[in-house]
């Protein structure tokens, strides 16, 4: 059975507060912050993008497990903000961590769930014996149109998972995906900012697919919600995952550990992988984790993950990245996001 051999997270150090953005547009910061359940969001540095964040997360994953990068047989990078429209992010990451040239590599895109899709691909490669180790990464430096409600949450960060069979720190017991064609959120080729269906992204998008994937997983595994010690749901804001948990009757404590959006915003493809990393940072052997991602367009990937006795202290825990922060003004933020024409 494929499992997690190593994992690593990375979140840029810059933040902008919801109130700083709200002030620029003359909005009521408290109402927005309360409505979204988000206080601030991470912002990439000028020199950071999906490739650099993925590389840093991958290096952290390698540091965590200490495997030889040459043994990695597959690298998949999931993101909706790949720096190139054509030319893979995965090749740069693979080269930067020293995994080339004997490997399979490609970029994935499925809105916010490309990272978990990459994990599933690597699981299949490992289970089929095609590779010993696969590296799956979910990262984004997501963009929101200035003035759009998305601007309060679109954030940057990512997490990397080394999937293998030997010395797993957490076994992925099962995965289940729920996929339909639902146009809740999209970005056309060449467009700088995404478009979305506003409230249509809620029930027909997020809730239907997270519910579908999660319930499918439970049916497949026979687990009940009570069996899980921690739950991670995709977190476009602080409210949706809490509402989903409430609907399922999952107590707040089980979901709060992996809920990072209130502090760092929505890291899109990095969202569920980062939430899961935060849980693994504190999880103990034998504990069971439920993780369900959501990607607009739309689909959900649900995972049942059991922590093994090989789990150990993460030298670069998510918490440190969350707490490492430096605030930007809106002007600086505009510069960081390269919205200034030079």
């Amino acid at each position: 059975m494929a499992g997690i051999v190593g994992y690593g997270a990375y979140i840029p150090r810059y933040r902008i507060k919801v109130e700083e953005i709200a002030h620029v547009w003359g909005k009521d910061a408290r109402a927005i912050s309360g409505g979204l359940g988000v206080k601030e969001k991470s912002v990439p540095s000028l020199d950071e993008d999906t490739i650099t964040i993925s590389t840093q997360a991958a290096r952290n994953a390698l540091e965590y497990c200490g495997i030889d990068p040459q043994k990695i047989g597959a690298v998949y990078v999931g993101s909706e903000s790949h720096p190139y429209a054509v030319k893979p992010s995965a090749t740069v990451v693979a080269e930067a961590i020293g995994a080339t040239p004997e490997l399979m590599a490609a970029d994935y895109e499925f809105a916010c769930k490309a990272g978990t899709a990459a994990m599933q691909t690597c699981m299949a490669f490992v289970d089929s014996g095609m590779v010993d180790y696969g590296l799956a990464i979910g990262t984004d430096t997501s963009q929101g149109r200035p003035g759009d409600p998305l601007e309060y949450t679109t954030a940057a960060g990512g997490a990397a998972y080394i999937i293998g069979k030997k010395d797993t720190v957490a076994d992925i017991e099962a995965t289940y995906s729920f996929t339909t064609d639902t146009p809740d959120f999209w970005r056309r080729e060449g467009e700088p900012y995404p478009s979305h269906g506003a409230r249509f992204t809620g029930e027909p998008g997020y809730f239907r697919h997270v519910r579908g994937a999660t319930e499918g997983l439970l049916e497949k595994t026979g687990y009940k919600f009570d069996d899980f010690d921690y739950v991670v749901f995709h977190q476009p804001n602080g409210k949706f995952p809490m509402r989903m948990a409430k609907k399922f009757g999952i107590p707040k404590e089980k979901i709060e550990v992996g809920l990072l959006t209130p502090m760092i915003g929505n890291t899109y493809s990095g969202s569920t992988p980062l939430g899961l990393a935060a849980v693994l940072d504190v999880a103990r052997p034998g504990q069971l984790i439920l993780a369900t991602s959501f990607g607009s367009g739309a689909g959900g990937d649900s995972f049942a993950i059991k922590v093994t006795d090989k789990i150990h202290k993460n030298p670069r825990p998510v918490k440190d990245y969350v707490e490492r922060r430096s605030y930007l003004t809106y002007g600086e933020y505009i510069k960081h996001r390269k919205k200034i024409r030079m």
Partner: peptide
């Protein structure tokens, strides 16, 4: 750490390296 250093103008290639 691993960062963008510069990029070619007009959609050119992105140069990555150590910082």
């Amino acid at each position: 750490t691993f960062r963008r250093i510069s990029e070619g103008k007009g959609g050119g290639i992105i140069h990555y390296a150590y910082k």
